Structure formats: structure tokens, C-alpha cells
Simulated scan of single mutants.
Amino acid sequence: MLKQSELFGEHVAEHHAIPQAYPGAERIDNGEFGNNRFDQIYRTPDGRYVVVEAKGSARASLGERTSYRGNRVQQGTREYFETILHQMSKRSKTKNDPVEAELASNLRAALKEGKVDYVLVKADATPDGRYAGYKKYQFDI
């Protein structure tokens, strides 16, 4: 059930929340799932980046992890964001992936320039599990 909820949240973010909130935004991540990565990354027509944490339930809580500095951080914080960038750079070296290295570098530069929207999308479902809507929250990083 957990994987289905995760997939539902991803679907709602990609097909409903982002197109409505950021018309014309293009998904630029590789679509892989797992730890040490953002759920989704988009580029808007005006050059901003939209980084999404997608949840499959309106009741889902934010995740936590150990940061690259060694302390606990929660999704939606600047240190969490920087920790994922660190992991992206590390993974790009391990996998010899210049595309991911460039994406991490571009996100780091955009963050410094204030050109990143870091958002949480929480899917809302009807009792039978069908799409009912979503809520989008903007993190202040």
C-alpha cells in the first residue's frame, strides 16, 4: 500500500499540481525513485526550478534524514535541500553521470540566486482511492 500511495502522490504532482501552478514547466529529472533524491524537478519557461516533494496522502508527514553535516533534518528545510544536492553530486561521480552532476550544479546556482521553488504536494483521495485534489505548500528555503 505504501508504494501505491507514493505513486499516487507522484502522479498527482506531475499531472495536476505542477501543470496548474507552473504552466509550461518541463520535468527535467530522470524519474527514478528512491532515497537521496528529490521526487521531481522541473524547469519553468522563465528559467526557475521547481523541486517537488510529493506525498500520496493529505495526512502524510515530512521525511527526515541525517544531513551531510551529521545532524537530523526534515524535508522542506534548506539543509535538507543542500543534503540532497550533495547526494546528487556524489551519485553522479559514482555512476559517472554528467547529466546529474550538471543538474546538481544548476540547482545549487539557482538556489544561490533565489530561483528555486521548493514545494510539497499532498494528494487528496476519495474514500475509494480516486483523485479528489491536492494541496501545494511552498517551503521557505
Rank of each mutant, 00 (worst) to 15 (best):
E6A: 04
L7N: 11
L7M: 13
G9H: 00
E10R: 13
H11D: 13
A13D: 08
A13Y: 07
H15I: 12
H16D: 12
A21N: 12
Y22D: 05
Y22W: 07
R27Q: 06
N30L: 00
G31Q: 01
G31F: 05
F33I: 15
G34W: 01
G34K: 02
N36G: 11
R43K: 14
D46C: 07
R48V: 13
V52L: 09
V52K: 08
A54W: 02
G56T: 03
S57Y: 02
A58Q: 11
A58N: 10
S61T: 08
S61I: 08
L62H: 05
E64F: 11
R65Q: 06
T66Y: 03
G70Q: 06
N71F: 07
Q74L: 08
Q74Y: 07
T77N: 05
R78A: 01
T83W: 00
I84H: 01
H86K: 08
M88A: 00
S89G: 13
T94M: 11
V99P: 08
E102T: 15
A104Q: 05
A104V: 06
S105F: 11
L107T: 00
E113V: 09
G114F: 05
L120P: 11
A123T: 04
D124M: 15
A125R: 09
D128G: 14
D128S: 15
G129A: 11
R130S: 15
Y131K: 10
Y131C: 08
G133Y: 06
G133P: 03
Y134R: 05
K136T: 14
K136Y: 11
K136F: 12
Q138F: 04
Q138M: 07
I141Q: 10
